[in-house]
């Protein structure tokens, strides 16, 4: 479970995150939805410790990321925006590197890599160097890498960027499977269809603030048009005045 409490972060003149609080529960897919520049990536970076918050705190399974980074991050799998893998290493070596940095090793780690190979359908990719991989293949390896230490919680920042239809579908299926296995998945997107197709909970952010939240049905019920798109636009309009 991931809890963000009153997060705030300023870069020089820009207040990237003003006030973001949310709860992403286990066995749920929580979507962070918002237009480009709304502060989604910054919020997630505050969560996974790449940035330090000016205000508020981020908790992973009750552990404060700022105070106990090692313990908190060990329970978190992260796929940052446009994450890259090492082109001169094979897919297996890429996974092994992260596994070892998580403290795994030996036969246990190799078994885990084989498991992930099956889960993500990496089979033929594992022994190949990543240099010639397609965008979708690279993403699968990066995702497997985020899962190598079997984290309870998973953070995906705009994971479908640049993926073709088939790869997007596969990713969606995988996220559902992880949820059904009891994991907490928090993922960000600026594509509304993406979020509505996958998420149990949606948190809409604009101008660094949470402007609406709820299940897709709850959000739809709150607006005149009755579509999620209307809800999204209404939430953004509401935020425009204050932001």
């Amino acid at each position: 479970m991931i809890v963000l409490e009153h997060l705030g972060k300023r870069f020089d003149a820009v207040e990237a995150v003003r006030e973001v609080s949310l709860e992403a529960r286990d066995a749920r897919v929580t979507g962070l939805l918002g237009p480009n520049g709304a502060g989604k990536s910054t919020t997630l970076r505050l969560l996974y410790g790449a940035l330090r918050p000016d205000r508020g705190r981020a908790l992973v399974d009750g552990l404060d990321v700022a105070r106990e980074p090692a313990a908190a991050l060990a329970r978190l799998g992260v796929l940052p925006h446009n994450a890259g893998i090492y082109p001169l290493l094979t897919a297996r070596e890429n996974l092994r590197y992260y596994g070892r940095l998580h403290g795994l090793g030996g036969a246990t780690l190799e078994r885990r890599i084989d498991e992930l190979g099956e889960l993500l359908d990496l089979g033929a990719l594992l022994p190949r160097r990543a240099k010639g991989f397609s965008q979708g293949e690279r993403l699968k390896v990066a995702l497997a890498r985020a899962l190598v230490h079997s984290p309870q919680n998973l953070v995906l920042d705009e994971p479908t960027n640049g993926l073709d239809v088939l790869a997007t579908r596969n990713l969606r299926e995988l996220v559902r499977r992880l949820r059904d296995a009891g994991h907490c998945v928090l993922f960000s997107s600026h594509v509304m269809q993406e979020v509505s197709a996958l998420c149990d909970e949606i948190v809409i952010v604009a101008h660094g603030r949470v402007v609406a939240r709820g299940t897709p049905d709850e959000l739809r019920a709150g607006v005149a048009g009755g579509s999620l798109e209307d809800a999204f636009v209404a939430a953004l309009d509401g935020a425009g005045g204050s932001g």
Partner: peptide
Amino acid sequence: RGSLEPLLTLP
């Protein structure tokens, strides 16, 4: 290459 950020999210 974008591999630094994931590396820095490790414990």
